[in-house]
Simulated scan of single mutants.
Amino acid sequence: MTNDAHDEQYYTMETIQENEFTLQLCKDPFNKRLRVDDYLGNVHAICLRLAKLLENDPFTKLFVKAREEDWRTFAARGYMLEGVYTGYFDGRDGYCMAKYTDLERRTSDHWIEEDRILEQVLELEPKMEREPLPDGFTLRCGTPSDAEELAALYGLIFQTYPIPMNDPAYVAHAMEEGTAFYVVEHENKLVSAASAEINGVYRNAEMTDCVTLPAYRGFGLMRQLLQALEEELLSRNIRTAYSLSRALSFGMNAVLAQLGYAYQGRLTKNCDIFDKFEDMNLWCKTLQDK
Rank of each mutant, 00 (worst) to 15 (best):
G220N: 06
L256C: 14
A205L: 01
N188I: 00
G155W: 08
G200W: 15
I163G: 04
L25I: 12
W283R: 13
K189L: 09
D167P: 05
G155P: 03
P29F: 15
N253E: 11
K27C: 15
L53R: 05
L221R: 04
L234A: 12
D102G: 03
E131W: 05
R49P: 05
R33E: 15
E113S: 15
Y261Q: 01
V43W: 02
R116K: 08
K127M: 14
L23T: 01
E131T: 11
R246T: 06
L259G: 12
V183K: 08
Y182A: 11
F30T: 12
S249M: 07
I157L: 07
L282W: 04
Y161H: 09
W71R: 02
R266I: 09
L139N: 02
T22I: 08
D90P: 02
D146P: 01
I273P: 04
A205R: 01
H6P: 00
N56P: 00
L221W: 08
A174F: 01
F181R: 03
L25P: 05
L256T: 02
S243Y: 01
Q24V: 12
E278R: 04
A152Y: 03
Q224T: 04
T138Q: 10
E131P: 06
T208K: 00
Q224E: 07
M207K: 00
A262Q: 06
D7Q: 13
L122P: 00
C271E: 13
D109P: 01
L225F: 00
E8D: 09
D209H: 03
H110W: 02
V255W: 00
L156A: 13
L48H: 15
T12G: 05
Q159T: 10
N237L: 15
T179L: 06
F74I: 14
H186G: 08
A152C: 05
L190M: 13
L248F: 11
W283V: 10
A254H: 00
S108N: 05
K276A: 14
N204V: 01
H173W: 08
M13E: 14
E129T: 10
N19M: 11
Y79E: 07
A257P: 03
D93F: 03
K276D: 15
N188G: 02
D135A: 14
D275P: 00
D209E: 07
M128L: 07
F137M: 11
Y182T: 03
G91W: 01
P214C: 12
F181S: 07
N19E: 15
K61L: 10
R130H: 07
D102H: 11
G220A: 07
P58C: 13
E206R: 02
L48W: 03
G83Y: 05
V191S: 06
V84C: 02
I157G: 09
R236P: 14
E232V: 07
R246M: 09
Y85T: 01
D167R: 10
D289Y: 09
